[in-house]
């Protein structure tokens, strides 16, 4: 029976592929279709079908290798996992329908056929999803590292005054990193005032505000003052609506005001020089 299925699949290679693409276009997640051009979709689809078919001819190790390669590729392309799992289901449906129509399977050997095709599809299903998840996990952990590298530098702008611009979303992990950079920087630059600029932070929710308050308190403990600058109107609104108490932290709307206050706090000011 296995041989019969294989022979059918091999001789109807192109028909199966075309039908598969047609069906998947209808069934698949819109994201998958939109994620790539038509040409890429057809190409990737045919690679997928080839991979499925190679399971018949190749050894277990070789198939494993191909599955890993293919999975890495589709993770990069942004194909969702459902595309693969649905894909396998659709594939076996096409084969079943085709073989039934051409009379290659009859009612009598139908049970044998389903057992055979299941024992073929299921291990493959497992291998491909495992490979997909592994490469997905790897991508996620690489992105996490990349995000950590987007560290927040502390820039000394005047004597005793440093600035830390924050850009992007702040989670607990990143907040810890930022706090370390901030405090090490304050001590090594001998900063008396630090301005933390949150203009580039898209959302300030309770958690982000909590991290900011903690950072400000830690700065005070090492012996400096901390001002939060870049409070946009919508951020002021969310802070008050969420009932977050930022009263113990000095805040201003613009960097300019922040710098002026910092200079005043260190007994200095900017004066215009007459020519």
């Amino acid at each position: 029976m296995r041989k019969k299925i294989f022979q059918y699949v091999q001789s109807h290679n192109d028909d199966i592929l075309n039908e598969w693409i047609e069906l998947m276009r209808v069934e698949a997640d819109e994201r998958a279709v939109q994620a790539m051009s038509d040409h890429m979709f057809v190409k990737t689809s045919s690679e997928f079908i080839q991979l499925v078919m190679s399971n018949f001819s190749d050894s277990e190790e070789k198939f494993q290798e191909r599955a890993v390669d293919f999975s890495e590729k589709i993770v990069r392309l942004g194909w969702p996992l459902a595309m693969i799992t649905d894909g396998l289901r659709v594939f076996s449906k096409i084969v079943e329908k085709g073989m039934k129509e051409s009379g290659e399977i009859t009612l009598e050997d139908y049970i044998e056929f389903t057992t055979e095709i299941n024992s073929w599809i299921f291990p493959m299903y497992k291998t491909i999803t495992e490979a997909y998840t592994t490469s997905w996990e790897r991508t996620v952990s690489l992105q996490k590292i990349a995000l950590q590298e987007l560290s927040a530098p502390l820039i000394p702008v005047f004597e005793k005054i440093s600035v830390m611009p924050l850009v992007g979303t702040i989670d607990t992990e990143r907040a810890k990193q930022i706090m370390e950079n901030l405090l090490e920087g304050v001590v090594s630059h001998r900063a008396e005032v630090v301005l933390i600029d949150i203009t580039g932070v898209p959302v300030v929710d309770t958690m982000v505000a909590h991290h900011i308050i903690q950072a400000a308190e830690a700065v005070r403990l090492v012996g400096a003052k901390c001002t939060i600058v870049g409070i946009r109107p919508e951020i002021a609104q969310t802070i008050v609506n969420l009932g977050i108490n930022l009263e113990d932290v000095t805040t201003t709307s613009t960097m300019k005001k922040g710098v002026e206050q910092a200079l005043a706090a260190t007994s200095r000011q900017i004066v215009e020089v007459q020519e």
Partner: peptide
């Protein structure tokens, strides 16, 4: 020290009314 400040904050100790200097 920065490490001390961070652990104090994480422990939830704020030493609120204390004056500090570098």
């Amino acid at each position: 020290q920065p490490a001390v400040a961070i652990t104090l904050i994480e422990l939830g100790i704020r030493l609120e009314e204390v004056m500090t200097a570098l």
